[in-house]
Amino acid sequence: MSSKVREIVESHGSNPSNLIPILQDVQTNDGYLSENALAEIAGLMDVSESTIYGVATFYTQFKFVKPGEHEIRICQGTACHVRGAESLLDFFKTNLGIQPGETTKDGRFSLERVACLGCCALAPVMVIDGEVYGHLTTAKAEKILTEYKEGKR
């Protein structure tokens, strides 16, 4: 049993209204919500595992697969869409050989679609490890990805 999960649950208290902040903190700590962590939260909060799983899977923020070393999030907002976000996503899918929600076999990159980052004036936009890149084209994205691959970023 991980002491960290216990610590997080205790810091919030086991009132059911604290479930989402607890899941958020566990994900911040572990990078995702593992089966073990979910079971542990259920035990500590005295709620069934299925209830916890039901809540967690409802929200897109929560991940159930270990993310890659670099997390690539492609914005799919309307402004990004009309400025070419779809070809951008296609480029990453082809280049990395994974679908959104997956991690490359070597564990280096994971790919995600995100509804809207609110940086619409810079569309199309993507975020890699919290760093925002705007005004992208597939050519620009390719250059950035290569730099990550070569460990220059």
Binding site: P16, I20, V55
Partner: peptide
């Protein structure tokens, strides 16, 4: 401040309240 967890439907009043109460935002 309560942080949402990514669900468009939570902009709807009753779904938003369900989410604050720690439930599925329906």
């Amino acid at each position: 401040v309560k942080e949402g967890a990514g669900a468009f439907v939570c902009g709807e009043e009753t779904a938003l309240m369900a989410s604050i109460m720690g439930e599925r935002g329906m």
